[in-house]
Design a protein around this nucleic acid. Structure first.
Length: 384
DNA sequence: AATGCGTGGCG
DNA sequence: TCGCCAAGCAT
């Protein structure tokens, strides 16, 4: 038995197991033609669609992970200008990379991408490997991105299953599995392997993305407007409101901080570099002290803590002048913001800390909460 | 498998 | 205001 036949038997078994009735070969071919002719007319012109260069496609796919197209475009143009080749990326300074990513979120993406660029330089002579099994070994590249690169850059009939594909396919075939579960991805890959166009796999995959973001949307969905409505079982059976099945996310856990804008006699503020792993790794932020409760410490206690943790002596204002909130995927920060004047110059700051003048803030990479803290201070100053 | 990891837009 | 989302991956 050939490998291909073996794989086909496996995918068929998976489909049977979940009660998914695969289309006839004739229907599959009609579907491909319908979808691709819609895509030919309606496809968006995007900066990463002007060539099949695997590097350009790779960068776009990493940026687009959990991120909207409109947000990505300016970052993408800037990034490609600063780091036009895999070699440039592999040799870049990490601070410069992080700065280019500032505001995009999920910052480990860019560190993983550089790690992968180095892997490509050493293991693949500076060229993206063509084999999906090799592509997926690269840092930061998972099943979706590997499939996207293989199909778009190398014309290989590989599925690229993301949220769009799961949503569209679950409606097409009335698939009941919960798309929030990691294990569900394999079901959708099996379907896509059956129906993907072997001649235009890249366009086929991208057509699902464009359809998913324009017509087959999560909300305000109008199946009657879809170019593939005649293939859509949930439309024909009027069950489309039930798909996709998706369990709820847990809500962000509240965390409370006091944040400190501490100014020295040169008009510089104390910044702290976050640890090299975890949330907002390697980014710069004003000192924060965590509170157990929403209840705030008094000024004396905070001054004492700051002396212990940062070996600085300050005159702190009596009350915080504002409150800043920031919601991450899994955390909700609430920060009471204080202003303080350095009263005593200490000999040794902690390694992670620096005094920085606001004129030079743009040389440092700030995460969202840090930007909000600074904005709240500027607004407070304008009130005075 | 479940959790950690950002941000901005929208109803 | 808040919940949900948008082209996922590492661990």
């Amino acid at each position: 038995m050939t490998k291909k036949r073996e794989q086909q038997n496996e995918t068929r078994a998976l489909l049977d197991q979940h009660g998914i009735q695969m289309w006839s070969e004739e229907k599959i071919e009609r579907f491909r033609a319908t979808l691709l002719s819609w895509y030919d007319i309606e496809k968006r012109t995007l900066p990463w669609r002007i060539s099949n260069d695997p590097y350009r496609i790779w960068v776009s796919e990493i940026m687009l992970q959990q991120t909207r197209v409109d947000t990505v475009i300016p970052y993408y143009l800037n990034f490609m200008e600063q780091f036009p080749t895999i070699k440039d990326l592999s040799q870049a300074h990490e601070d410069k990379l992080l700065k280019a990513w500032e505001g995009l979120g999920y910052y480990s993406r860019v560190r993983n991408m550089q790690k992968a660029a180095k892997q490509i330089m050493t293991d693949y002579e500076g060229e993206m490997p063509r084999d999906p099994k090799e592509i997926i070994k690269l840092s930061g590249i998972g099943p979706y991105t590997a499939g996207a690169i293989a199909s778009m850059a190398f014309d290989l009939p590989e599925p690229a299953v993301d949220g769009n594909v799961m949503r569209v396919v679950s409606r097409l075939f009335e698939i009941e599995v919960d798309i929030a579960k990691p294990a569900s991805r394999k079901i959708f890959e099996a379907v896509m392997r059956e129906i993907i166009d072997p001649y235009k796999p890249g366009d086929f995959n991208q057509a699902f993305m464009d359809l998913g973001s324009s017509i087959c949307t999560p909300k305000n969905y109008h199946p009657e407007l879809s170019p593939i409505k005649e293939f859509n079982a949930s439309y024909i059976n009027e069950t489309w409101a039930n798909y996709p099945v998706k369990s709820k996310k847990k809500k962000a856990v509240p965390v409370y901080y006091d944040g400190f804008l501490i100014e020295n006699e040169h008009g510089e503020f104390l910044l702290e570099k976050r640890p090299k792993e975890g949330l907002l790794a390697n980014m710069w932020i004003f000192p924060l002290l965590e509170e157990q409760e929403k209840e705030r410490e008094n000024t004396i206690k905070l001054q004492k803590k700051l002396k212990e943790d940062y070996s600085i002596e300050i005159r702190l204002m009596e009350k915080s002048f504002s409150e800043v909130t920031h919601i991450f995927s899994h955390l909700k920060w609430t920060i009471a913001v204080y202003y303080g004047k350095l009263s005593c110059v200490e000999k040794v700051l902690p390694e992670k800390c620096q005094w920085v003048h606001p004129d030079n803030f743009n040389e440092y990479t700030f995460p969202g909460p840090q930007t909000k803290l600074w904005q709240s201070y500027l607004a407070y100053q304008n009130m005075q």
